[in-house]
């Protein structure tokens, strides 16, 4: 199937604007890290995942685990734009009593399939989900999106072994390879390369894509194919802060909290991009 690229780009633009607004209103949250994964999430939630938005707990749905929990504004905006809950909820993100907590909570938010917040744990949760679901008549797929920095967590590689050992071919891992982490470039702080070879050595099928190009994502997924017996990994090359020029590869690691003026500037840029 050829993805409807224009449609996806419009959704991505709307989601980016919501992400900027919700973090602007909350005056708290990881903006640049959220923007880098918007296109991947839009692709998943509009093109790939089998879901019922009016039945978030549908047992045969595909599952999604956000390993990099700090990117949850992007997930929340995607879920709201896919009508899992009213978009108004976005404006109380991170407030006391809010449905949308600072990191994903599974029992609070419709459409959230797994908890997040502690880096390096997403893949292990996804493995458990894939094991639980693999004896169903129609096996749901399990998708997991992790940041590149969290590959430094040792437990992640315990989980990477488990995925391959149990031949979890219903599992697709996306690595958001923006090359940045809290204090700088991943390769300066703790080298991750060669990422592709690491996964290959662990028994995975690996492909790469441009994490901001929907056709590239679709092609990478097609190249992985059915990957009989192997978990699949797509290393998605992304740009931190994608879509907002003054945030893209911002040396502060994207921890900047936008003031009113910068928020307006960012929204104007995104309006233009969405036209």
């Amino acid at each position: 199937m050829t993805p409807d690229l224009n449609g996806l780009a419009e959704h991505a633009s709307a989601v980016r604007r919501d992400v900027v607004r919700m973090i602007g209103v909350a005056r708290s949250g990881h903006l640049a890290s959220s923007l880098s994964i918007v296109d991947l999430l839009v692709w998943l939630y509009w093109e790939v995942l089998s879901l019922r938005t009016d039945e978030p707990s549908w047992e045969d749905r595909d599952r999604f685990v956000l390993g990099k929990g700090h990117g949850c504004p992007a997930l929340y905006a995607v879920l709201a734009n896919r009508s899992f809950f009213p978009r108004e909820e976005l404006w109380s993100y991170r407030r006391l009593g809010a449905m949308l907590q600072g990191f994903p909570e599974v029992r609070r938010t419709p459409g959230v399939d797994a908890p997040g917040g502690s880096l390096g744990q997403g893949l292990g949760l996804a493995n458990g989900l894939a094991l639980a679901l693999r004896d169903r008549a129609s096996v749901p797929s399990v998708f997991c999106l992790v940041g590149d920095g969290e590959l430094q967590e040792g437990a992640f590689w315990e989980s990477a072994m488990t995925s391959a050992h149990f031949s979890l071919d219903s599992l697709l891992l996306l690595v958001d390879r923006d090359g940045r982490q809290m204090e700088g470039a991943t390769e300066d702080i703790m080298s991750l390369e060669p990422v592709r070879d690491k996964f290959l050595a662990f028994g995975w099928a690996v492909e790469e894509c441009d994490g901001h190009d929907f056709a590239s994502m679709e092609e990478a997924r097609a190249r992985l194919g059915s990957r009989r017996g192997k978990p699949g990994c797509i290393v998605a090359n992304t740009v931190l802060g994608k879509g907002v020029s003054f945030l893209e590869n911002d040396p502060s690691g994207g921890r900047m909290v936008l003031g009113r003026d910068s928020m307006d500037k960012a929204l104007r840029e995104l309006e233009k991009g969405g036209d």
Partner: peptide, 12 residues
């Protein structure tokens, strides 16, 4: 990983 696998199984 044991704990994470168990948690994922419970989610499933």
């Amino acid at each position: 990983d044991m704990i994470l696998t168990a948690a994922g199984l419970a989610l499933g």
